[in-house]
Design a protein around this nucleic acid. Structure first.
Lengths: 141, 141
DNA sequence: GGGAATTAGTTACGGAAGCAACCAGAAAAA
DNA sequence: TTTTTCTGGTTGCTTCCGTAACTAATTCCC
């Protein structure tokens, strides 16, 4: 019963790979814009899919509402987004990026694409496809 | 420039997959033994590779020394391991599992193997091999 | 219409992580 | 020897995350 090693344990490997792969990009948005991971994700969703409510971001991004709430406040403090209360339901706030926010999004978006390309350059197209397929299935997307 | 989506961003996917895949097993050792992730990893290393110093665990497991230090204390409180100061260098402590610790290790070890098997049953052998190869490379092991 | 139950979002609190400062012991240098 | 540097390990501080409780607005249902 000693044939199974930690490096054969998929969740462990996934965590290690996730940490390693995130580190580089994380440093980029942290150093450059003082942003946290959740902030980057929220910014991405708004930049990529247009104005959304916090609720919608929660669902799409699968982030807990308290984290989103804090990220939204932080992005607001940085003047990267604006809130606008909806007239028909005053519990809802539409969130939209400011010009400054859009600029940051564009930079990070480009960098993310570049980063991903660079990272995947070690693999063949087939490996890349299988990797993504497996990850998507595991993440149950 | 809108062809790149969050779900195409490998670090994002990796994080999602890592979180999802860890959740099930994490619940197991948390509910059953009140352990944290770092504690489980330290326990695993000691159970799988025999007595080690904290330093060695840091290197092998790639965990920061403060985390290891706290995990070791926690495992000691639970009576899962013992420290023994080395005579030739009194800064070093050899850590070894108690009988209770070994029992917990065996249970978790078996459960991890089972969990992994179950999780991978969705994939073909080839996919499994490629997935692990890619993850190992990304994690730069 | 007027409660009761829901829902969007915030806040408060306790635990966990990272960083830096720290302590003791050992090795290196003077 | 003694003083400086380095190393293994711990602790303090601050930030971050998750759970649960809360507020305000809306809908359900009588």
């Amino acid at each position: 019963m000693t044939d199974f090693d930690l490096k054969d344990f998929t969740p462990y490997l996934l965590n290690l790979a996730a940490e390693t792969s995130s580190a580089g990009f994380q440093a980029y948005y942290k150093d450059r814009y003082g942003m946290l991971r959740t902030e980057w994700r929220v910014l991405f969703h708004l930049g990529r899919y247009g104005p959304l409510t916090a609720k919608e971001i929660c669902e799409r991004a699968r982030i807990h509402k308290t984290k989103v709430s804090r990220a939204v406040s932080a992005l607001e403090d940085k003047r990267y987004l604006l809130r606008r209360e909806q007239a028909e339901d005053r519990r809802l706030e539409t969130l939209r990026l400011t010009e400054a926010g859009k600029k940051v999004f564009k930079d990070l978006y480009k960098e993310a694409a570049r980063f991903d390309l660079e990272m995947m350059s070690d693999f063949t197209a087939e490996e890349h496809a299988i990797l993504h397929k497996c990850l998507t299935k595991i993440a149950a997307l």
